[in-house]
Design a binder for these strands. Sequence first.
RNA 1: GGGGCUGUAGCUCAGCUGGUUAGAGUGCCGGUCUGUCACACCGGAGGUCGCGGGUUCGAGCCCCGUCAGCCCCGCCA
Length: 596
Amino acid sequence: MRSGGTIESASRTSRRTHRCGELRAQHVGERVRLGGWVDRRRDLGGIVFIDLRDRAGIVQLAVGPGAPEGVRRTAAALASETVVEVEGEVSARPPNMKNPELATGEVEVHPGRLVVVGPAVTPAIPVTRAKGEELPAEELRLKYRHLDLRRPEMQANLALRHRLLQRARKTLSDLDFLEIETPILTKPTPEGARDYLVPSRVHPGEFYALPQSPQLYKQLLMVSGFDRYFQLARCFRDEDLRNDRQPEFTQIDLEASFVETEDVLGFVEAVLVALWDEAGHRIARPFSRILWRDAMERYGTDKPDLRYDLPIADWTAHAQRLHVPFFESALQDGARVRGLAVEGGGALTRKDVDALAEMAKRLGGSGLAWVKRQGDQISGSVAKHFTTETLGELGVGDGDAALFAAGPDRVTSPVLDRVRQEVIRRLAPPPKAAHAFCWVVDFPLFEPDPETGKPVFAHHPFTAPHPDDLQRLEAEPFECRALHYDAVYNGAELGSGSIRITDPALQRTVLARLGISPADAEARFGFLLNGLQAGAPPHGGFAIGFDRVVMLLAGAGSLRDVIAFPKTTAARALFEGAPAPANPADLAALHIAIER
RNA sequence: GGGGCUGUAGCUCAGCUGGUUAGAGUGCCGGUCUGUCACACCGGAGGUCGCGGGUUCGAGCCCCGUCAGCCCCGCCA
C-alpha cells in the first residue's frame, strides 16, 4: 500500500511500521515502530548506540541523556542478538556523523520506548564477525543454522532464490504451462540412482520410493493431454554427495506436447534468460549449439567452458613424423596425440607444468609432455624434438607453450579437459564473455558398460533415438545418437532433456536392446507402456537443476549456501539431527527389523 | 567403497626439532567514558589440545585406530 507524500511501508504490521533497513532521510521526523535483533552495541557511557538488524538491513538507535530513564537502563543492558521492539522518532544524523557505509546512514532513531521481546543467550556462533575474521566452521554453521541464516549474505541468497522461483513460475505460466504436482511417495525404480525408500505400514514388506525426478509422471501428463506441464519439483537421490550435490534438491521440471527439440530449447532459453535477468544479467538468445562429438573433441568434456578459447588440437600426424619416445610408446591401437597450444603459455612456471603433469598422471594418463618457446629458445620435456618451424605448425608462437597427451580418447579427453581448466585458472586470461551459454546436442543414445562393454543407456531409457540413426539401433548401437540435449553455462551443466519415445513398439525395442526382457519391461515400466498405447502425443521436456542455478547466480561456493537447511556430505542434518534411530514400536508397525 | 585436508578457549586462529605454568584477537563478565559505527581504555573469568590406545623420562606436536566437517575419485539412468 502506497499513498502520496509519505511512503506507506509494505512491511507494516500491527507491531511495526517499517523494517529497520528501510529508513531513509525522507522518513526524518516520522514516529516509527521497529522490531529487530541487536547487531552491535556501542556504549559510550552517557550515550548508547545500538545497531538494530532485520531482513531489510541495519539502522542505528541512539539512546542519549534525553531518553527516558527506562529506555536508557534497557539500552545499557542489551545483549547481542536480543530481539527488541522500539518506538521513536527518525532523526537526521548530525552532519559529521553520517555513515556512508550504511544504507540507513543518514538517519538514526531516538527511541522513546524500547522493550526486550525476545531475550537471547550468548550466540554459539557470531552472526556479525570482526573484519577479516573467517566464517565459523561449516559444521557449526549447520548446527546453529538459525544463527547462520541471520547473516545478511544468507538472507540475500535465500531472497534471490525466492525471486528466481517466482520468476521461473511466472515465465512458464505466461508460456501457458500448467503447474501440476506429482507424488512424493512413488514406485521404486530399479535403474539409475539409489532410491530413498519409505516402508508401507499397511502392506508388510512393500515400499514406496521418493522420486528421483517426476519423469514418468510428466510423460503420463502429456499422454493425458495437459500439453504443457511444469513443476518446481523436489527430487531425491541416495548417492554420495559433493559440494554441488545434495540428497534432496529442486528441479524446474517441464514437459510439452506436439514439440520438436527446437521448441523445448526455446522454452528453456526463455526460463534461463528470465532467471539471469532477475539476477541483473542480460543474456542474448539463441544460445550457441555444439555437437556432443565436437565438444568431446575440442574440449574433452560434454560441458565445455566456452568463456575461453584454447581448444584441444589433434597432433597425431605431426607426432608420427617426430619420433618422440613419449608419443611412440602411447601411439598404438588407434591412440592419438592431442594437446593444447597455449597462447602466452610461456608464463607457466616449471612448477605449474609439473603440477599439470602430476594431475594428468593421477587421472590415469601417461602424463603430459610440454614445450615452451621464448624467441628461438625451446625448452621442455620434449623440446629437443621440436624446431620453431614445427612448433609454428602446431600454432605455437613466441611466448607460447604446447601441452601434449597421448593415448586413447577415453583417457586423453578427461585429462585435457582438466589440464585446460587448470591452465585457464593459472594464466587467468580475460574471458571472451562473462556468460557463455551453449546447448550440447546429439548425445549418444547408449554408452558401453565399463565392465561388460554392453550398451547401457547414456541418459534414461525413454529418450528418443535420432530418427536418422534408427536403423543403427541393432548393428551399431554406440553410433546411434539421441534426441537429448544439455544446457551448459560456463562449464557447468544446468540441466538436460530430450524428446521422448512415444511409440510403444520402439520403446519395447530400446528396452530389449538394453537387455531388459519383455516381462521385466512390463513390471518396471508397464504403466508408462500402457500410457503410450493409449494415444501418446509427441512430447519432450527438460529439467533445470535449480539449486545449482541459484548457487551460480548468488556467487555462492556451495549448494549449502543457497539451501536453508542442507545436509552434510555424509547426508546428515546437523540442525535437527536427522537421520535418527526409530523407536522399536514404530519399526514393528512397519514390519522392519534392524540388523546390526 | 577409496584418497586427501582440517579438528587447540564460546568463535577465528598461532603454537618452532617432542621439553617448564598452552598463547593472541574477538566474544563473555566487571568497571570508566556524551557522537560511536570493528567505539576507546582498565581489569577478570574461560582449555578433556575431537575421542581411544601406543611410543617416550616427557606428547597439542610422533605412531595406530576411531569420530566429525570439508574436498576429490568411484557413484549420481
